[in-house]
């Protein structure tokens, strides 16, 4: 209930109200959210495909991950910030929206998957760096990431249809 109180307060703040009622700012932020998503998820998908041994297999995995994950993180930051604004504009509706709840859960799972990968198989990447097909744990992390992010997009798009 405290969470519900928070989202109601958030939605009624002056800036969230002004943003919701704006004719230009809202579509622009939504456009930024979509384009940042394509940058963030697009670059992560390339990393996932490398981990799965499907794409860019002629180069070390560490090289692909080092650069494209940094790029993806920039995209993610923009996506998260624009997403937070969009959330604030319709916070209470999002709170009750089952697709939005699913999206948050999927984002959380994608984060856990990345964390587990970083703390386990990524630690001895030197052992499998140049292998075209990485070990099972790395391939699995790549596959989970790819599926989870695709589902985040599905849940996100469906949320917007149900607001």
């Amino acid at each position: 209930m405290r969470l519900l109180g928070f989202v109601q307060w958030l939605q009624q703040t002056a800036w969230a109200t002004a943003f919701r009622e704006s004719t230009l700012a809202y579509p622009i932020v939504e456009g930024i959210h979509l384009l940042a998503l394509s940058a963030s998820v697009g670059l992560i998908a390339i990393c996932d495909l490398r981990l799965m041994g499907i794409a860019l297999t002629t180069r070390p995995a560490s090289e692909v991950l080092k650069y494209l994950r940094s790029g993806s993180l920039i995209g993610f930051t923009v996506m998260f910030a624009s997403g937070a604004l969009l959330f604030a504009a319709a916070a209470e509706k999002c709170y009750y929206n089952e697709w939005f709840r699913l999206k948050v859960l999927l984002l959380f799972l994608a984060g856990v998957n990345a964390l587990v990968f970083n703390l386990t198989v990524y630690r001895n990447i030197t052992a499998w760096d140049v292998a075209g097909v990485p070990p099972l744990a790395a391939r699995r992390a790549g596959l989970f990431s790819l599926i989870l992010w695709a589902l985040v997009i599905v849940a996100g798009r469906t949320t917007a249809y149900n607001l």
Binding site: L35, L37, A39, V41, G42, L43, L68, G71, I153, R157
Partner: peptide
């Protein structure tokens, strides 16, 4: 329509992501 639009976004994510890289 929502299903097709979602697939459209997944497609453009791969398109824009690889071009960006």
């Amino acid at each position: 329509f929502p299903a097709i639009e979602t697939a459209h976004i997944l497609g453009l994510t791969v398109l824009l992501g690889t071009v960006l890289a």
